[in-house]
């Protein structure tokens, strides 16, 4: 037991600081992905909700692709695809160089693609929960289409979509572990290194699992708070 505590302590003898750095990378990857995924997902939901059939079809193709591919494969497609694409593009321009894509950025792009396709479904079902009268009321007040969307519909939409988006955030947090495969020093990779050096794999992967659990618990309490905040208008009614 004492040995385990020494291994986990901070400083030269322990691996605590390495693992803490891994946690930081994991959390910052998830937080950096979130805004892109949300905005892209909202735009795709708008496209799916529009009355224009071609726009709907285009958005549906997008979600079919990124919900059907394994996340790991999407990650490799982005990581190697961008690398090869950039190299080919530069070759056409006459530069012959080797390019390595930053694994953090590649992970961010891949996770945002996957997150946005799931988030668009969450937003779409929230759109279905907003009665037509809200739009009509907005137009009757002389608001433009854009104003109706941002001032009337969006605030209600967020409240309706929050539970589903909260689940997606928890999934995103877990999916960041895949980026360790393309070399990002996240929680999983750092604990893997610690496990290999100290020959204590169960201890370090167990700790990694527990840290993921703690992150999930913190997120759940945070999400519950945000949900209560979003519903504060309901209480007085």
């Amino acid at each position: 037991m004492n040995e385990a505590l020494t291994l986990l302590s901070f400083g030269d003898q322990g691996w605590g600081d390495t693992i803490a750095f891994g946690v930081l990378v994991t959390v910052s990857l998830a937080i950096a992905t979130l805004p892109f995924g949300l905005i892209l997902g909202f735009l795709i939901a708008l496209a799916k909700n529009s009355s224009e059939p071609s726009l709907k079809l285009a958005a549906n193709i997008y979600t079919t692709i990124f919900r059907g591919l394994p996340e790991l494969l999407t990650l490799f497609l982005v990581y190697f695809g961008v690398q090869i694409g950039l190299q080919q593009g530069l070759k056409l321009l006459g530069f012959e160089t080797y390019i390595e894509v930053n694994s953090f950025v590649a992970g961010m792009v891949a996770l945002a693609l996957v997150f946005s396709s799931y988030a668009s479904e969450a937003f779409l079902s929230a759109f279905k929960g907003i009665p037509q009268g809200q739009y009509e009321g907005g137009y009757a007040l002389g608001l433009s289409k854009y104003q109706t969307l941002t001032l009337v519909v969006l605030p209600q939409l967020i409240r309706l979509a929050l539970p589903a988006l909260g689940n997606l955030w928890l999934i995103l947090l877990k999916e960041t572990s895949l980026v360790s495969v393309i070399g990002l020093s996240d929680l999983i990779r750092e604990s893997g290194i610690a496990a290999r050096v100290t020959k204590e794999p169960f201890l370090f992967f167990g700790i990694a699992c527990l840290i993921y659990l703690v992150l999930a618990i913190i997120s759940s309490t945070g999400l519950a708070r945000i949900e209560r905040w979003s519903k504060r208008g309901d209480v007085s009614r």
Partner: peptide, 11 residues
């Protein structure tokens, strides 16, 4: 349900 499948497999 709270930990990644990858971490469970490694564990």
């Amino acid at each position: 349900r709270g930990t990644p499948l990858l971490a469970q497999t490694f564990l």
